[in-house]
Lab assay of single mutants.
Amino acid sequence: PPDDERKKAEKAARSGNEEKAREILERLGYSEDEARELAKRLR
């Protein structure tokens, strides 16, 4: 489910793995720019 994926992205971002967070968010349908912004904010 998307919620689980989003949680994974948050966890990745918090542990400093912004790249992985961005990949997950892009898979969820965010654009590259949106995903980058979100990954930064989740950190």
Rank of each mutant, 00 (worst) to 15 (best):
R43F: 14
S31F: 02
R27S: 12
P1Y: 12
K20I: 12
K20E: 12
E37I: 12
R27D: 04
A9V: 06
K8S: 10
E18H: 06
R6H: 11
S15D: 15
D33Q: 13
G29V: 00
S31K: 06
E5F: 10
R14W: 10
A39W: 02
E34D: 11
D4H: 11
E19D: 11
A21K: 01
R41I: 11
A35E: 01
K8H: 09
S31G: 07
S15L: 12
D4Y: 09
E10M: 12
L28H: 02
A39D: 01
E19G: 07
L28G: 02
G16K: 04
E19N: 08
A35Q: 03
P1W: 15
D33G: 09
R43E: 05
G29H: 02
Y30K: 01
E18W: 12
D4Q: 13
A12L: 14
P2G: 13
R22M: 11
Y30H: 06
A35M: 03
K20Q: 10
E23H: 08
R14E: 06
E23T: 06
E37M: 08
S31N: 09
R41D: 07
R6A: 08
E10Q: 12
A9K: 02
E37D: 09
K20Y: 11
K11P: 03
A9T: 04
A39K: 00
K7S: 10
Y30I: 04
E23R: 09
R22K: 07
K8Q: 13
K20A: 11
L42R: 01
R43T: 07
E19T: 12
E34P: 00
E18A: 07
R6Q: 10
E5P: 09
R41W: 12
K7W: 12
P1K: 13
L42T: 02
L42W: 15
L42A: 06
R43L: 12
E18I: 15
R6N: 04
K7Q: 13
E10R: 10
K20W: 10
E18V: 14
P1L: 14
D33I: 09
E18N: 04
A35H: 02
N17W: 10
R43Q: 10
E26H: 09
E5K: 05
R14Q: 13
E18C: 00
E23W: 08
L38I: 13
E26P: 00
L42N: 02
R14Y: 09
S15F: 07
E34G: 03
K7H: 09
R6K: 10
L42I: 07
L28A: 07
L38R: 01
R27W: 07
A13H: 02
D3W: 12
K7I: 14
E23K: 11
R6M: 15
A12T: 05
R14H: 09
P1M: 14
E18K: 02
G16E: 04
K8T: 10
R41K: 13
E5A: 11
D3H: 10
A21M: 05
A39S: 04
E23A: 12
R36D: 04
A21D: 03
